[in-house]
Design a protein around this nucleic acid. Structure first.
Lengths: 200, 200, 200, 200
DNA sequence: CATGAATGAGGATTCATTCAT
DNA sequence: GATGAATGAATCCTCATTCAT
């Protein structure tokens, strides 16, 4: 990648960063390209050189976040640790990531967020597979835990969603309460609760 | 309440119902009053006889849902059962309610949903207190459980949010997977997981 | 006119009165039938039993005012006084009338008021003739004064409009300055100024 | 001011001009932005790049007119002529201005025009001060005339409003009679009438 | 007759997107 | 490439008028 390319990538990142902030503050519909352009210190027109629409900008954001999560999850599930240890690692690493990227958390709510079946089917088509891939990876860990008799014999996806639900609500609480205190403080409690609950 | 009044209330409900469906399908911003009016089989103008703005319509919806949840929670926490039993009842009843009102679930996401601090502060002022009251009621149960040595010695609000997180993600999964199968099937699993996790 | 009729007329007057107040406060377009209905303590629908449209209501108001002015002017110009005395009487009586009916004054501005050639030609067709009749009556007095060598030899309509202009601006000032002090106080000054100006 | 800026100002003027015509034809409320946009040969949206609302557009128009009048009045009252001569000059110059800007005249009616205390208090706040400044400047001339024993010993503001009233009614007549004949023809008559009336 | 709920056309305003400079 | 003015479709909301009760 030559300098040209690198420059372009860097500017793309800057726009994404600005967009993240604005989307997190105002939500997808309420945020305007003017807001984003101002924050990014680019002209509105310039943004269209990097993203082909507002939707595309937003979806790129989500995609990037999901890719990052994917990296994190992959790094854990491909380790040789036991399922229990992997779950501990997952909680810990996802927490750290979301604490640093709380805007991503605020933007992303796949199960009911801004983009809906009815109005944005192609948007979902672009995002959901990535989300589901992440879910799948975690579910595999759960399955293995069950197979090894370490986890309760329930539908493994129930465990996955429970795990994600706990993490989300935990961060939601943190955001709601004004982001005071380190989020990490809760990791231990959360981990114990989940593991005691999931364990056989 | 005379016939006039009753009729008026009935029509209000009809509009709320239509609005619920549309908001759930498209989200607050994407939903238009035309959509809602058409669904409700009223003219656009008529809706303004019942609600003073789109915001008001939406918030009324949320309020009603929160009030219903409030009733449910109150009926449980005011019973004489033990905290553990109350938690079991809560999960069971909230599940039943949300299964029947899944649109409400899709609409309501206080910690990041459509209305944001920056753009709709008064909207939040109208909703958040009700939400927090519900959280408070549940948190009291958790506190009592902790006091009695039945639940882990953690910040009680962590337990409350964990509970809500599990419920939400569970319904989210149900919605995402196309709402096949009875949601109630999961209640038992969820209950066990949460209680095993929360218990001391 | 039987009781039925009289009742009807009385209610019509009540509505006109309420309408006058509202139109004066908000102007023709900004005033709504809801405002007027509330002020009149009638239902919106009822008003349509007395006037066939908002335009009609407004025009009826103007017409009534112009008719009253017409009566006043006629009573003066048909007297046997000299033109100069008639002018004095006109000023005095019109002032008294407009002071008591300042809302009419605020509503009526034939040369540029709410109704315009382009948008309300038929409205003007209904009003302008009455207005012009009043102008004509006064102009006759001016003509006579000129013929008798009492007034300056200028286009008589110039004198008429000058007279009206002085009266209007005088009331305008009174309204603008918060309607404090009796308007009548100015009559003498105005009369002298106009007569000294118009006299040969 | 560079070309960019100049272009922008020119387009702003064009929009103001179109708006002036439309507002004069139809009045503030009846005029629509579509009308104005069409006349200005701009898109509706473009107008919002120059004015932040219909109100703002209208008020800018009034403001500009008042500023122009202000310039005219100032140029006269700051001359070293006698008060009588200044009054003559005022009448002459204001006539010339309003004849060229009869639309401004039709739009502007501060004492009862479109904007009312009840409905547009901030609009009045923006306009009235300028109007009153103009009145004040003229009133000073009247005061000086009185002090020098040239004008009648009456409340000076009465003279000011009388002057404006005569001018307005005169132009009103001209407009009403179809704008035939030069307005200037009347200036002499008006001047004599006013001065003879006002003089001691 | 009176009422006031319902209608629906109409208008101000916003904003994603385009494109001339 | 970048800019930001212009576009115009889209949407909320208002209100004169009608009409069932």
């Amino acid at each position: 990648m030559n300098r040209r390319e690198r420059e372009k990538q860097r500017r793309r990142k800057e726009i994404l960063l600005a967009a993240m902030t604005i989307f997190a503050e105002k939500g997808f519909d309420t945020a305007t390209l003017d807001d984003i352009a101002e924050k990014a210190e680019f002209s509105k027109g310039a943004i269209y050189g990097y993203f082909k629409s507002k939707d595309d900008l937003f979806l790129s954001l989500i995609e990037e976040g999901l890719n990052n999560l994917s990296e994190i999850i992959k790094s854990v599930v491909e380790s040789s640790s036991s399922p229990i240890k992997q779950i501990e690692d997952l909680i810990q690493k996802i927490f750290v990531y979301l604490e640093k990227n709380k805007d991503f958390f605020r933007i992303f709510a796949p199960e009911r967020g801004g983009f809906t079946e009815k109005k944005h089917p192609e948007a979902l088509k672009r995002i959901l597979p990535k989300h589901q891939k992440n879910i799948e990876m975690v579910t595999k860990v759960m399955k293995e835990g069950i197979r090894m008799g370490k986890l309760k014999k329930v539908e493994p996806r129930v465990l996955t969603f429970t795990l994600f639900g706990i993490i989300h609500s935990s961060i939601g609480r943190w955001v709601m309460e004004g982001e005071k205190g380190a989020l990490k403080r809760d990791v231990k409690a959360i981990t114990t609760i989940f593991l005691d609950g999931a364990r056989r």
